[in-house]
Amino acid sequence: MAQNTTDMNNQNTGNPVLSVRNVSMNFGGLRALSEVDLEVRPGEVVALIGPNGAGKTTFFNCITGIYTPTDGEVTAYPKTGKRKRANGVRINGMRTNLVCELGMARTFQNIRLFPSMTALENVMIGRHCRTKSGILGAVLRPAATRREEQEVVDNSYELLTKVGLEKLANEYSRNLPYGAQRRLEIARALATEPFLLLLDEPAAGMNPQETEELKQMVIRIREEFKVSVLLIEHDMKMVMSLSDRIYVMEYGRIISTGTPKEVSEDPQVIRAYLGEDDDA
């Protein structure tokens, strides 16, 4: 365990896995993001917080290819894969599926599972970009395809065990309880073998106990899969105890950044959350 921690520290000093420089996003005349800078280093849990409508989800959409930022640079530094390059891969405007293939997998604020597929199949979809059997393989089913298919099933089941859903493997995902759906989304994202996990409000709608379990799970996943995590979250208790660093966003700008302690003492952050103090 101690070894592990030093590893993590060493990694922290290295290159970032995701670096966002000066990113702006305009929707017509509306400036949703304005010159955002953000960095995620290997093995880190970074949280992005801010009041509703601050632009957090827009930011997520910008770095996962759903939107193309109007301005600025989003660069990823994948550890492996054919797209690995020393100076990183520029991903603004890249197709969403290629961003995922690169190793940045996300979950959604309003859960987006495939409702009439089973939990296991949902995770198996995540394996899609890491497997390659085509039409001919599907029809003729040679040994290689059969092996690949069985590996997909086994890997997916293993991931379900990791998030504690193995008993619900053959259940339609629409029938799962809310908390389980959230965890299933994380398992599905993990199936794509990401180096960076992007969680959009994973604890939304969860009770305190579920939130605590989720927190433990994120910590476990980070250790086990050696992933970095960037999360958007409103639950302050979870954010403060889980993240290594926090970025605070308001009106599309980053207004503060630092460790949880630094951020929570920042007067600008307090003002953003609690409003201006009239007596001052």
Partner: peptide, 10 residues
């Protein structure tokens, strides 16, 4: 089922 999630999953 869900085009956006499908593409986001690679």
């Amino acid at each position: 089922e869900d085009e956006i999630a499908c593409q986001a999953m690679g």
